[in-house]
C-alpha cells in the first residue's frame, strides 16, 4: 500500500477506535465492578493486526490509548489502560503469528490478558493485593466480552476489503 493511502487508512481506523472507546464510556456499568467492560475498541486493534500487520496494530493501539486518556481520562488511567493494551496486544500478535487459532480464541486470550494486566498495575500502584478478589469476575467478563469482540472482528476481517491488504 502506498504511504499516503496507508496513512489515511490508519487514521480512519484510529478515529473508529476512538468512537468505539467513547461509545463504551457511555454504556452505564451494569455490574458494580471496575474494569468490567466489553473492550469494543479492541475490534479495531484486532482488525488492524490481521489486515495490516503487527506493527500497524501496535501503532493504532498506543495512539488510541494516548488520545482517549488525554480526552476522557487522567494520568493514572493512562498507565492502567496502557498496561492492559500492551499485554493484550503482545498476546494477540504472538497467537496470530505462531498458532492457527481462530480470531475468536485470540480475542478471548487478548481480553483476559488485558484484565490481568490491569489488575496487576492496580496492585502495583496501590501497593496492595486486595484487588485479586475481583480476578474471577474479570476472568469471566473478559472471556464473554472476548467472544463477542472476536466474532465482530472475524466478520469484519472477512468482509472488509482494504486495497493492498492481506
Amino acid at each position: 500500500m502506498k504511504n499516503t493511502k496507508k496513512l489515511a487508512t490508519l487514521s480512519v481506523i484510529v478515529a473508529l477506535a476512538m468512537v468505539l472507546s467513547f461509545l463504551e464510556s457511555r454504556i452505564p456499568a451494569f455490574v458494580a465492578i471496575p474494569g468490567i467492560k466489553v473492550g469494543l475498541a479492541n475490534i479495531a486493534v484486532i482488525f488492524t493486526v490481521y489486515k495490516l500487520g503487527a506493527r500497524e496494530g501496535v501503532l493504532i493501539s498506543i495512539i488510541r490509548v494516548l488520545l482517549v486518556s488525554i480526552l476522557f481520562g487522567s494520568t493514572v488511567s493512562l498507565w492502567y489502560s496502557l498496561a492492559g493494551a500492551i499485554l493484550s496486544l503482545i498476546v494477540t500478535i504472538l497467537l496470530k503469528k505462531y498458532t492457527k487459532l481462530a480470531v475468536v480464541t485470540v480475542s478471548v486470550a487478548g481480553g483476559v490478558s488485558h484484565n490481568i494486566a490491569q489488575i496487576g498495575v492496580a496492585c502495583l500502584l496501590l501497593e496492595t493485593n486486595i484487588i485479586v478478589y475481583y480476578l474471577p469476575f474479570l476472568l469471566l467478563s473478559g472471556t464473554v466480552a472476548g467472544i463477542a469482540v472476536g466474532v465482530a472482528s472475524a466478520l469484519l476481517i472477512k468482509r472488509v476489503k482494504l486495497e493492498g491488504s492481506r
Partner: peptide, 10 residues
C-alpha cells in the same frame, strides 16, 4: 482446539 481453549477459560 479453539473450542477446547475457550471452554477451559470459561
Amino acid at each position: 482446539k479453539d473450542i477446547i481453549i475457550i471452554s477451559i477459560f470459561l
